[in-house]
Computed example of a mutant assay.
Amino acid sequence: MVVLNMEIISKEMIRPSSPTPHHRITNLKLSFLDQIAPPVYVPLIFFYQNDEPDLKNTNHAQKSQLVKQSLSKILTEFHPVAGRIQENSLVDCNDAGAEFIEARVHTRLTQIIKEPKMEELKQFLPVETLSYQTEKAILSVKITFFDCGGIAVGVCLSHKIADGTSLVAFMNAWAATCRDQVIGSEPSFDMAAHFPPMDLSGASGFTQLKQLAAAGGGGDVKNPTRVEAVSAFIWRHFIDAAKAKAKLLLGDDINKLKTSSFVAVHAGDCDIVNKLRDAIREIDEGYVNKVQNGEYLRLLSKSVDLVKGDDVEICNFSSWCRFPMYEADFGWGKPVWVCTTTLPFKNLVILMSTPCGGGIEAWVNVPRDELNMLQTHYDMLGSVTSMDFVNASN
């Protein structure tokens, strides 16, 4: 493992500047969707360049203090984030606080982001993404100062109460508070009202599904989106790799699939894009009603029969594109790069916008040889459009 020359300066717990008011819920029930979420952290790292080289070594303490004070203030608005989860059923909004780590790394920011290495990136996170347990801090933060004056803010937020969208919303509100700006509307924590908690004590099929997911860590398509096209391209190569091992079976027409690119989807991958679009269109009011009525859990349990055999592999895609990650300005300017790290799911792909907004970074959790094949096939297309594949496996 590559170990950076990183020095931990301090560790402390940041509590809300004001206690949770009595008119707010002090015991927040987890929604059904939160209950079944895997017990991991959602990780993001925000990298900021130093625009004042003459001050690079003089204002670390000032910046750190400002970040801590603004974190304390924003926790008053996002009060469950400062609480603790109890028995996978509720958040005790006890104002226990968020973990805060300050560190210094003796290297330059450009050395880290020019050729990112997963082993190095993970050291900018405050905790291991797999280490979340109930009664631990829901939010952990690590601010790291580079020798060049650059700054990294690594954040881990429990997936039990947040997803990528929620984490970005929190970061933007925190950054605005750090700039002494008032955030917009007050955040809402009413998921349990829409998706009531359920008794999952007998849901052994779902337990199998989570274990499997975490193992090892037809017609013309008009105007495919970049997410559809990239997903189809990567999915296609998952299929190729799995077919070579005689393991994958994903439908009657799977042998007809052809190569696609990010900027032009070819005939075979139109079939994949159509399947994606059809699936997304099914997420309507009727689908939400099924989730609310418990149908979703039944379908998850039924899907175990499809994936528990050795002849089927699961491919997971999550698009974080267009999330306003690059708006998180703490007063040092907008980040020059925002990234995630390893998540413990086999064949997981996270799609993120590049800093310019026009390209896509694909964080792919597959064996390195399969990732190299994917990058080679994309490069052979001769596309001028930016798409980077990052090895997100351990």
Score class of each variant (00 low, 15 high):
S231M: 08
D220H: 08
W235V: 01
L249C: 03
A213W: 09
I254W: 04
T225N: 07
I234D: 07
K247M: 12
E228M: 03
D252C: 03
G219C: 13
I239W: 06
A244F: 01
L249S: 06
A244E: 13
W235A: 01
A213D: 03
G216A: 06
L249D: 02
P224K: 08
T225E: 05
R236Q: 12
L212D: 09
A244K: 15
R236T: 08
K210T: 00
Q211N: 12
A214I: 14
I234W: 10
K222A: 06
G219R: 15
K243I: 05
A246Y: 03
D220S: 01
V230H: 01
W235G: 01
D220K: 14
A215K: 15
I239G: 00
L249R: 13
G216H: 05
W235N: 05
A215Y: 11
G216S: 09
L249K: 13
I234V: 13
R236D: 04
N223C: 03
H237A: 00
A242M: 15
H237P: 06
F238E: 02
V230Q: 03
H237R: 15
F233A: 04
L250H: 02
V221A: 02
W235K: 10
L250C: 05
D253A: 07
H237Y: 00
A242S: 14
G217M: 12
I239M: 11
G218T: 08
L248T: 03
K247F: 00
V221R: 06
K243E: 06
A232H: 06
I254E: 11
D220E: 09
G216N: 12
A246C: 11
L248W: 04
F238T: 02
I254D: 09
I234Q: 10
A244D: 12
A213T: 10
K243Y: 00
G218C: 09
R236Y: 04
D253K: 15
E228F: 00
L212C: 11
F238M: 11
H237K: 14
A232P: 03
K245D: 09
G219I: 14
L249A: 02
G219N: 14
G219L: 13
G251K: 10
L249E: 03
D252F: 06
A242V: 10
A229D: 03
A229N: 04
S231Q: 07
A241Q: 12
G219T: 15
I234T: 09
K243S: 04
K222W: 00
A241C: 12
V230K: 08
I239N: 02
T225V: 06
A241R: 13
V230F: 00
L249I: 04
A232T: 05
D253N: 14
L248P: 02
A214F: 08
